[in-house]
Simulated scan of single mutants.
Amino acid sequence: MHQLLAILLTLCTLIAAEQAAAAEKINVLLPQRNANEAIAPFIAAKYLGYLDQEGIEASYLLAAGSNEVAIQVATGNAPIGWASPAQAVIGMQDGDAQLDLRYFSAVEYRNIWSISVPVDSPVSSVAELKGKRIGVTALGSAGMNYGKAYLRAAGLNPDRDVTFIPIGAGGQAITAMKQKVVDAIVFWETANITFGIAGSPVRQLPIEQKLTTLPDVSLLARNETIKKNPKLLVGFARALAKGLDFCLANRPACVLMTWKIYPESKPAEGTPEQKLERGLKMTTTWDGWTDAQLGDRRGEFIESRWNDLSEFLLQGGQIAKPVPASRMFTNEFVGEINNYDRAAIMKQAKEFDLKSLQ
């Protein structure tokens, strides 16, 4: 009996070792300098073993921004990147220097960029910003592109009616707002949440509906990878979809998971309850990872919105002619990405023991 048990244990060990050896090791680039709760679905995909189930061993590398992610994926330094599409689509234009990339799984269904003012500002519309100073991280940042589009839509001339001022990010940007160096800012969603947590809350100004639904950060890869290694891309996107489902069903677990893997992301001050409350504020970004038009379907691109993105870039003078939707993304993997038991993931999330993360 003991001999049989020993043989079985040896077989199990060999099988586990074989599976580990067979796992495809990859780097995945995320466009953030620092980890925070907003990337928890990626963390959950790894921590909960969803990537293991796909035979993938992923290391997440934090990059300086979406442009850096796109460039690194295009040069083959990582097979998968999570990047905002504006700069990537600009690089997809016909020409000798085009980026040979395409998006293969949609993640963010709403535009993460907004034009905002301090909560106590008397300004209530974009049109009222005429003659004002608008802060962006840098004059070459994506915020400039979006800010100009919002101003044009409000009937203003962005090159004549306002002044753009580079104010950096984080504490530097907060100081610029407190000292009234700028009257408004064009920043991304998680940055705005961070400003509120730091005691400098901002209020978003209404923008044209068509601009709010421009697609944003999604998964991209080289066309060669899409053609030659679809199993890897489907597996990663499916694991991320599971991670998102888990996180939407149990947000506190995913906040604690982020802190466990990236301890530096945990707030340093406050009671445990206050820290968790701050962490949960960052999870509101996941609300844009789904869309009512698609229901529970994950990863599907909405073509009309990508055409709106192409038009947005065309009007801004960043592309010379529209980029076809088929050049920007592929929906060929959507069926396989959604081929999993969503009810089982939801059950796992609701039964998850939070104490295991403390």
Score class of each variant (00 low, 15 high):
residue 102 R to G: 11
residue 78 A to K: 05
residue 45 A to L: 09
residue 97 A to K: 11
residue 79 P to D: 10
residue 83 A to H: 06
residue 58 A to W: 13
residue 51 L to R: 10
residue 40 A to M: 11
residue 105 S to Y: 01
residue 141 S to N: 10
residue 60 Y to L: 11
residue 146 Y to N: 00
residue 58 A to I: 09
residue 127 A to T: 09
residue 130 K to I: 06
residue 77 N to E: 12
residue 31 P to R: 07
residue 103 Y to C: 03
residue 53 Q to E: 15
residue 69 V to D: 07
residue 160 R to I: 12
residue 75 T to W: 14
residue 95 G to Q: 01
residue 66 S to N: 09
residue 146 Y to A: 00
residue 85 P to W: 04
residue 136 V to K: 06
residue 103 Y to H: 01
residue 94 D to R: 12
residue 86 A to L: 12
residue 70 A to W: 01
residue 122 P to E: 10
residue 162 V to G: 05
residue 138 A to D: 15
residue 120 D to V: 00
residue 74 A to M: 07
residue 102 R to D: 00
residue 140 G to P: 03
residue 49 G to T: 05
residue 114 S to L: 01
residue 153 A to N: 05
residue 107 V to Y: 09
residue 43 I to K: 08
residue 65 G to W: 00
residue 91 G to R: 02
residue 44 A to P: 01
residue 106 A to G: 03
residue 151 L to Q: 02
residue 143 G to V: 03
residue 118 P to C: 02
residue 76 G to Q: 08
residue 82 W to N: 08
residue 62 L to G: 08
residue 42 F to I: 01
residue 33 R to C: 03
residue 112 I to A: 14
residue 112 I to Y: 04
residue 71 I to R: 15
residue 122 P to Y: 07
residue 100 D to E: 07
residue 139 L to Y: 03
residue 81 G to K: 10
residue 33 R to L: 15
residue 127 A to N: 04
residue 105 S to N: 04
residue 125 S to I: 00
residue 99 L to F: 03
residue 152 R to E: 13
residue 119 V to R: 11
residue 157 N to W: 05
residue 136 V to P: 06
residue 36 N to A: 08
residue 152 R to V: 12
residue 38 A to T: 15
residue 99 L to W: 04
residue 38 A to G: 09
residue 132 K to N: 07
residue 127 A to E: 14
residue 77 N to D: 12
residue 78 A to D: 09
residue 150 Y to G: 02
residue 35 A to M: 08
residue 136 V to A: 06
residue 157 N to F: 05
residue 121 S to I: 07
residue 123 V to S: 01
